[in-house]
Design a protein around this nucleic acid. Structure first.
Length: 754
DNA sequence: GACTCCGATCTTTTT
DNA sequence: GATCGGAGTC
């Protein structure tokens, strides 16, 4: 019990109140991770609960790993059987076991965001829609938003509310895209990230016996960062806990910064409704930061209307005031930050690792990075492209994925002509369309390719199929590392990279070797029971950034976005780029709710600091290759001036405190500059047809072959062939200027000329 | 089918 | 400024 003695009163309550529903509202720096880990340790050690019956959910792999380590340090080996992980990894595992209930094979592929977007791009093209209107990003966000709110495509396409919404947004085909996207994922035996949660909900809804099984298995459920859960995630946990009622959620509404990806603060209110016997525990004492920092943070978050009542306080020293640094340019800002770090290290004996520079967008790291490098201060940038998103890594993984699941459309597209074997885009489209038209698996098309594609391409595909078949054999007989090495070598990927003697080529070659090493490491891990490629892919699909911990030098300044700094703390923190339109972000200013999310982000940034905090802004900054004028952020003046002081050592002119900066509501100099520079861009050649002045789409239900039609974008053409694909009627039209196009008549706006 | 050039786009992020 | 996809050319 000695580990419990270090807790304060509410923390102790949070640990020992294990029976019945509990909500722990944990202010910044109040020791919430500690409460969660001790709670699990308490369950195992003091209450004798089998770790097998405990489920603990987090949002990042890193958080899960850290928590597991901390629990292991208290309870030892018992922690091994805990179900602990991210929502996605835990329920992906569950779905693999129960996949047949949903009509999926257990070796289903997980599509990452890139796969999803590329599939959407393909569908938009198939439908003959304008990809300027239906941007992959926008479409995916819409689909993702629907799934996260548990709106199926069936509901989406029948509920007039969504239709009306999409019509106003001038995107009337969104429902169709959603439907087709789901169907094609299903056909490819693939789930995207949102499906992992959505389908878990479907599983629990339609298969009560499965739900029952897991309800009885998970007698204790815990959710970290509860403010970041979306409806889909919340519904899963609610259902799992509805029998035992032993559910504890931990979160802080003031630190909710992921609404943009579907997180729903309302869950906190719903939780009180769904579990009326709820015990609410508030952790309000901050152990992390100085009084000045805590007070300044409070003064900022008080500006937000929507928040739960909570008073974060600290018994720590008053500390020094926040220093405000003003610079002329982003480069000067970088120099000021690096010299401030240099001075502080020399004067106060800080290490480099005591400093963090936090910014709103990844692109801001450039100026800081340059300055630090010139001063010889070690630094590490977090974020940006992760190892598993690199092209060469995705290529090899696509081979592995395709060998495991030969209906994986996205992997197929990636590798069928890599290295070049003479299969062009046209043939690929033909084969994928054929799989749909005949309603057969993609692999069946490939093994009978001569019926669908002719000539050289067909022979190339035959060789490809033979190659994949040989890979299948090696996957069945070898462990993951041997099989992956075999595939990397015999696919020709390695050779292609090896032959590329440029620096980037060398890098790519090394990256592939590194991936193979990682697979070797995976195979050699004693706890891993399944050593095959399939098992490895399951692991890796849900992995992302913060993996490579093979850094020897541990003394470095941390550079990261505020989003990735959540959950971390540093002695000294610089918040840079405090400029209107950058932070708060221009994109976020369209609604009050969004401004409040930006403000919470600012709050998160402030509360990372333990001892010293610096605000910095520049009067000009390069963005998108253009030098733009900047105005100080409204957030600076929202901080109570009594906690601020101007740093007079830096900056050419003194910024004034307590005086309104006159921040414009929405449109600002940046926006104006951008609009003007867009206008100034040179003439854009008119490529597409201009519809006739009397253009009005005709009723195409009676459209005949041979009819002459006008398309608003492609101009005049003649209908060559009519076709049906399920419920969809298609017309193959040969346009005078744009050649052959297949149009979906349900969408295409056509005027029948004669 | 492969290569090259042009131009549109660009938040935050985890999975 | 850098990247990526599409269109145009051989």
């Amino acid at each position: 019990m000695d580990y419990l003695s270090s807790l304060n009163e509410p923390q102790y309550e949070g640990v020992v109140n294990t029976e019945g529903p509990a909500m722990i509202i944990a202010g910044a720096g109040s020791g919430k991770t500690r409460v969660l880990t001790y709670r699990i340790a308490y369950l195992i050690k003091e209450k004798g609960i089998d770790p097998f019956n405990i489920l603990s959910l987090t949002f990042t792999n890193k958080a899960a790993r850290e928590m597991r380590e901390r629990i292991e340090s208290v309870v030892g080996n018992d922690a091994r059987n805990l179900w602990m992980g991210t929502f996605h990894s835990v329920f992906a595992r569950m779905l693999r076991a129960e996949a047949d209930r949903l009509g999926y094979p257990s070796n289903f592929t997980i599509y990452d965001t890139e796969d999803s977007k590329s599939l959407i791009r393909a569908i938009v093209k198939d439908f003959g829609l304008d990809d300027k209107v239906y941007k992959p990003n926008v479409v995916l966000n819409r689909i993702s938003g629907a799934k996260n709110r548990l709106v199926s495509w069936q509901e989406y396409t029948t509920n007039p509310l969504y239709k009306a919404d999409d019509d106003t947004a001038m995107k009337p085909e969104m429902g169709r895209l959603y439907k087709t996207y789901c169907q094609r994922c299903f056909k490819a035996n693939a789930m995207d990230f949102d499906d992992l949660l959505f389908n878990t909900n479907v599983l629990f809804r339609d298969h009560v016996d499965v739900l029952n099984k897991y309800q009885h298995r998970f007698k204790y459920v815990m959710v970290d960062e509860f403010q970041d859960t979306n409806v889909s995630q919340y519904t899963i946990t609610k259902k799992l806990a509805s029998v035992s009622q032993n559910i504890a959620v931990v979160g802080d509404d003031a630190q909710s910064i992921y609404a943009f990806r579907g997180a729903n603060i309302e869950n906190i209110l719903n939780f009180e409704k769904d579990f009326p016997d709820l015990k609410i525990i508030k952790l309000e004492q901050n152990y992390r930061s100085s009084q000045n920092i805590v007070n300044a943070a409070n003064s900022v978050i008080d500006m937000n209307k929507s928040q739960l009542k909570k008073t974060v306080w600290t018994a720590n020293d008053e500390g020094s005031k926040i220093e405000l640094i003003k610079s002329v340019s982003d480069n000067e800002e970088g120099r000021f930050v690096s010299s401030a770090i240099f001075e502080q290290k020399a004067q106060k004996g800080y290490a480099s690792s005591d400093f963090a520079v936090l910014y709103r967008t990844n692109s801001q790291s450039r100026a800081i990075e340059e300055a630090l490098r010139k001063s010889g201060i070690h630094y590490k940038i977090y974020g940006g492209l992760s190892f598993y998103q690199r092209k060469e890594i995705k290529d090899l993984l696509a081979y592995l994925r395709f060998v495991i699941n030969t209906n994986d459309e996205q992997s197929f597209r990636r590798i069928v002509n890599l290295p070049k074997r003479g299969v062009g885009v046209a043939s690929v489209e033909k084969m994928i369309v054929a799989a749909f038209e005949h309603d057969i698996p993609l692999w069946e098309v490939l093994t009978n390719v001569e019926h669908f594609v002719s000539g050289r391409a067909a022979n190339a595909v035959k060789d490809f199929v033979t190659l994949i078949k040989s890979f299948k054999i090696s996957v069945e007989t070898k462990d993951a590392h041997e099989a992956a090495s075999h595939i990397a070598k015999n696919s020709g990927l390695i050779k292609e990279l090896y032959d590329d003697k440029t620096i980037e080529g060398l890098n790519r070659y090394e990256n592939v070797q590194e991936l193979l090493n990682a697979i070797k490491e995976y195979v050699d891990t004693p706890e891993v029971e399944e050593k095959g490629i399939g098992a490895f892919l399951q692991e890796v699909a849900l992995l992302t950034n913060q993996d490579n911990e093979n850094d020897q030098n541990t003394d470095f300044v941390t550079l990261m976005t505020i989003h990735s700094a959540k959950g971390l703390e540093f002695k000294n923190v610089f918040i840079v780029g405090l400029e209107e339109d950058l932070f708060p972000s221009q994109m976020m200013l369209s609604s009050r709710a969004d401004l409040e999310e930006e403000r919470r982000l600012f709050y998160v940034a402030i509360t990372r600091a333990k001892e010293n905090l610096y605000f910095s802004y520049a009067l000009s900054r390069y963005r998108y290759g253009r030098l733009l004028n900047c105005e100080p952020s409204r957030f600076i003046e929202e901080v109570d001036p009594s906690y601020l002081k101007v740093n007079t050592r830096y900056g050419s002119r003194e910024p004034k405190l307590g005086q309104s900066f006159e921040t414009p509501a929405v449109s600002s100099r940046y926006a104006r500059n951008l609009v003007q520079s867009r206008k100034a861009q040179t003439k854009k050649p008119l490529q597409y047809h201009k519809p006739s002045p009397d253009f009005k789409p005709s009723d195409t239900s009676e459209l005949q072959e041979g009819a002459k039609v006008e398309h608003p974008k492609f101009g005049f053409g003649k209908v060559a062939k009519m076709d049906t694909d399920g419920a969809n009627r298609k017309a193959k039209v040969i346009f005078e200027d744009f050649g052959e196009k297949t149009l979906l008549l349900t969408f295409a706006k056509l005027r029948i000329v004669e």
